[in-house]
Each structure stands twice: as structure tokens, then as C-alpha cells.
């Protein structure tokens, strides 16, 4: 160890403490001045916390994985109405989430008796698309999760310090400054357009309380076209291969897996079918896991549920869909236990 005089050590530590405190305080003040109404906790963090939450008594768990179609379209309360109180439904979905990839990342989370409901958003599932939320969620699902004490401390820190909860980092701010300077336009977003009139329920259901919004549908269709690729079958072959292994491993652990294709309609649904024809994609998945794949168009109760933007269910349809899902899951697990 190199010799450093005591006075130099003292000066180094004093400088380190002073500069760190000044920089962190300045950053905190700057973020507070932005006051952009940033979320208290990031979507991936919330989803992972729900996933890692300790089991309640002997309750069997249903994990809902996927995208915003799932967390806006599935109300755990309504699912539980059908399943009964011996179940615990957890939302583990993020905006533009990739359900099969979440299943793979969180494979060690699942225990005997659990059911994983994997919502398959075509643009994410078939192309292997991952946004920041999805990548972060995968990291968090792979870990063992925070202990209750850690959750308390993190919660306290996030509640009091904006820089601990803000998605803005010095790096992202610098990027924005440079983009502005070079006139490159906005940085690529982390998801599609976000509707405003929503209510976040404690069980993770994000209820959309508005009406059908034509402006949202235009954004959604544009986003789908921009993000999708026609050259995706190779990616889907890989996805299927991995799903086969994962479902087999989970089956050995006593975990059941169900795949959902949730409703979409109008121009968006037509575009989805053009980009990802059912015969080339969903039917292949169905062929791999017969009886475990529930496409909304195959069931009377879910075929004509209205959406508010062609891709997310309205409040009423979400409740109807959730009740249907609860009923379907009940039949599914009862059949399996016989």
C-alpha cells in the first residue's frame, strides 16, 4: 500500500465529502426544478416488487406477464372474483413488455402450484423487441429481490430524494443537451404513446377511465409501423425454441403456463395481422402448446370487446375480460388437477 501522509488523507477525504455533497445537492435541486411529475417509482421496479413479494399463506399465485395490454386490460380483483380467495394475482407487466422474455428472466421465481399468464404483444413477442422498461424488469426478475428491510429503506430514500427515483441521469441529460444542440429531435422514447386519464389500482391494474380516443389510435398505428419489422420469423423461431425449454422446466417444477393474445381492433388489428399474420405466428405458438394458448378471437366472450385506442381495453371491457380470464383459469387448473 502506497504511503500517503495523514494530512493528505484528511484533505482527500474532506474534498471527496464536500464535492460529492455539493454535486448531489445541485443535481437534486436541478431535478426538483424540472418538476416534470416524474413517477415515484419506475414501472419495472414496481412490477419486479410485485413479483418478488413473499407468498401470502398457502395462496396459489398467478403471475401476469406482458405489456400494457395486460396491466391495463386485466384487473386482478375481477380475476379473483372467479378464482376465489385462495389465489393471489400479481401484475408483472411493463409498457411494451415482452411476456416470453419476462418468463425466461424470472424462471427461478416460480414455485409449485403457480400459474404464469404470458400475454403476447405481437410487436414485442415476435420480434424480440426490448425497451428500457423490459431490460430493467428482466434484470430485476433475475435477482433475488429486495428484503422487506431493503424495500423500506429504498422506499424512504425514493420518497425523499428525487435523484434516487428519477429516470433522468446526468448521462441522459447530457444526451438531451447534445441532441438539442445538434437539432436531432427528441430522444427515442421507451414506449408507445401514454394516455392520461388512468387510475392506478393498488393491485397493479391501470384502469383507463376515458373514452375512445381517435388521436391515440393514430399514434398507436404509427408506432406499430415504425417499430415492427417484417423480417422477424427468425427471431420468433428462437423465441419458440426457448419457450419450449422454459415451459418444460417450469412443468417439472409444477408451474403451469398460459399464453394470451389480448384484444386489438380497427386499423391497428389490421396492421398487426399484416405484419404478423396469425397463421405464421400465433398458430405456431398454439401448435407448440395446444390448450395453453388463448387468442381473444377464438372466444365469444372476448371477440368483440371494445378498446379505447385499438390496442388497450376500456375499463368495462377490461373488467369483462378479467372475469372471463378468471373463469377460464379456474377451469384450466381444475382440469389439470383431475
Amino acid at each position: 500500500m502506497a504511503r500517503v501522509p495523514g494530512s493528505a488523507r484528511f484533505r482527500t477525504m474532506a474534498l471527496l465529502a464536500t464535492v460529492s455533497i455539493v454535486m448531489l445537492a445541485s443535481w437534486e435541486v436541478y431535478l426538483r426544478s424540472l418538476d416534470a411529475g416524474e413517477p415515484v417509482t419506475r414501472a419495472a421496479e414496481l412490477a419486479a416488487e410485485r413479483a418478488h413479494r413473499p407468498a401470502v399463506g398457502d395462496k396459489r399465485r398467478v403471475f401476469v406477464l406482458g405489456s400494457s395490454r395486460a396491466y391495463r386490460g386485466i384487473s386482478p380483483k375481477n380475476v379473483l372474483e372467479q378464482l376465489g380467495p385462495s389465489w393471489d394475482v400479481r401484475h408483472v407487466a411493463v409498457p411494451l413488455g415482452n411476456g416470453p422474455a419476462q418468463l425466461h428472466a424470472g424462471i427461478d421465481l416460480f414455485r409449485d402450484g403457480d400459474v404464469a399468464v404470458v400475454e403476447c404483444l405481437p410487436v414485442a413477442t415476435y420480434t424480440g423487441l426490448r425497451n428500457d422498461h423490459q431490460s430493467e424488469l428482466e434484470q430485476r426478475l433475475k435477482g433475488t429481490g429486495a428484503t422487506p428491510l431493503e424495500r423500506e429503506i429504498w422506499g424512504w430514500l425514493r420518497g425523499h430524494l428525487v435523484f434516487r427515483r428519477s429516470p433522468s441521469t446526468p448521462s441522459s441529460q447530457l444526451r438531451n443537451v447534445m441532441r438539442d444542440a445538434l437539432d436531432l429531435g427528441a430522444a427515442p422514447g421507451t414506449g408507445g404513446p401514454h394516455p392520461k386519464p388512468t387510475v392506478m389500482h393498488p393491485d397493479g391494474w391501470q384502469e383507463y377511465t376515458g373514452d375512445f380516443d381517435i388521436s391515440l389510435t393514430v399514434d398507436q398505428v404509427k408506432y406499430l409501423r415504425d417499430t415492427s419489422s417484417r423480417n422477424a420469423p427468425n427471431a420468433f423461431t428462437d423465441v419458440l425454441r426457448r419457450l419450449r425449454q422454459d415451459v418444460r422446466l417450469l412443468g417439472a417444477r409444477g408451474v403451469q403456463v398460459v399464453f394470451l393474445r389480448m384484444p386489438s381492433d380497427g386499423e391497428y388489428a389490421a396492421e398487426e395481422e399484416k405484419l404478423f399474420p396469425r397463421a405464421e405466428y400465433w398458430n405456431r405458438l398454439q401448435g407448440e402448446f395446444p390448450g395453453h394458448c388463448w387468442h381473444f378471437a377464438d372466444f365469444e366472450a372476448t371477440r368483440n370487446l371494445p378498446t379505447y385506442d385499438y390496442t388497450h381495453l376500456t375499463s368495462k371491457s377490461a373488467q369483462a375480460y378479467s372475469r372471463w380470464l378468471g373463469l377460464k383459469l379456474r377451469g384450466f387448473v381444475e382440469d389439470d388437477s383431475r
Partner: peptide
């Protein structure tokens, strides 16, 4: 670090600490 002196060492360590604490926790093990 010993050769760089206390000023450089303290300043570099402070910047590293700042960047580490503000990087955005992704919960990665």
C-alpha cells in the same frame, strides 16, 4: 493515486461517487 496527489484523487473519487449514485438503480445483481 498517491502520485496524483490529494486534489486529483479527491475530485476523481467524488465524480465517480456522484455518477454511481445518480446512474439509476436497475436492481442488477
Amino acid at each position: 493515486s498517491a502520485k496524483a496527489g490529494w486534489l486529483v484523487t479527491g475530485a476523481v473519487a467524488a465524480v465517480m461517487l456522484f455518477l454511481a449514485l445518480t446512474a439509476g438503480d436497475r436492481g442488477a445483481e
